[in-house]
Nucleic acid binder design. Structure first.
Length: 285
DNA sequence: GGTGCCCTGTGG
DNA sequence: CCACAGGGCACC
């Protein structure tokens, strides 16, 4: 199976933020173009567009897989890339990707482009003080590097759940920012079978997860690091994590640790790859 | 708790 | 031509 790394999870969103922020923060939005009204999270795409024009971009923050541009009047442009969304900052006249859905023209002529082949991604604009609950950003659990993401927190939250631990890691209300790629990588590094019901995890395994989740997310955030020119040339997809993935997309290949054949299963409706030796099945109930 | 849907492109 | 990819959510 081919490895695909254009699905943005926390490390990729952080790369977008790090590349985009220096080019966007402090600039004024001179114009906005909505090619795809469906990519706007509100029914009134024209109100979304006019609400952006003239505002300055004061900050660009990340929370889980969400990006939030805080604007000068206190309104917030909230963005979610879902499966195939990406942002680029291009100089005037730079060729436009055919999947460009929303464009923000900055006052220096540079253009922030939201490209999204499958149109799952969304942008929302919330006015000053307006509730942003509809986009889901308020339901997120702790960040992977939050000191509150402890073994105790996870075992109390999930210790009685019959859900597979893989599903629990994908639950954004449990921990924010983990998707299908890094849940497989985390569980491989932790030596835990992704199909293990959460209530079967031992205290030792909860402890291992509490260490492994921040460690792996930090590691992949660093390996993803790139610069603005290279990121633009790659069309906003130039994440460098591919060579570092150990199991995702590697079904049928030898385990990088023990050499056993990596297996693929569907868990919680998601393709999951794991090593049957390094991630042994839990004991029968 | 599970299933289907939104979308589009790719591989078989 | 169809199965598949999957984040998040509506809907049982």
């Amino acid at each position: 199976m081919e490895r695909r790394t254009d699905m943005p999870e926390l490390p990729e969103i952080e790369t977008i933020r790090r590349v985009t922020a220096p080019q966007a923060v402090g600039r004024r939005i001179a114009d906005a173009v909505v090619y795809a009204p469906g990519s706007v999270g509100h029914p009134d795409a024209e109100g979304f567009r006019t609400g952006l024009v003239g505002r300055t971009i004061d900050r660009l923050d990340r929370r889980g897989k969400f990006l939030t541009a805080v604007l000068g009047d206190g309104s917030r442009l909230v963005m979610h890339m879902r499966m195939t969304g990406c942002l680029t900052v291009a100089p005037p006249g730079y060729p436009e990707d055919r999947h460009t859905r929303i464009v923000l023209v900055l006052d220096d002529g540079y253009v922030i482009r939201f490209s999204d082949m499958r149109r799952f991604g969304r942008m929302w604009l919330f006015g000053p003080g307006e509730d942003d609950g509809c986009c889901g950003i308020g339901d997120l659990g702790p960040e992977p590097d939050d000191p509150g993401l402890t073994a105790e927190y996870m075992s109390e939250r999930l210790g009685h759940s019959s859900r597979a631990i893989k599903e629990c890691l994908l639950d954004q209300t449990v921990v924010a920012g983990i998707g299908n790629i890094y849940s497989d990588e985390i569980l491989f590094s932790a030596g835990i079978d992704p199909a293990t019901p959460a209530r079967r995890l031992t205290a030792e395994q909860w402890g291992e997860l509490a260490v492994t989740i921040p460690e792996r997310i930090r590691y992949f955030t660093e390996t993803n690091s790139t610069g603005p020119e290279e990121f633009l040339r790659s069309g906003g997809k130039g994440y460098r994590n591919t060579p570092y993935l150990r199991v995702y997309g590697q079904a049928g290949e030898p385990c990088p640790v023990c050499g056993a054949t990596l297996v693929r299963r569907v868990i919680g409706g998601r393709g999951s790859v794991s090593c049957p030796v390094c991630q042994p099945a839990w004991g029968e109930p």
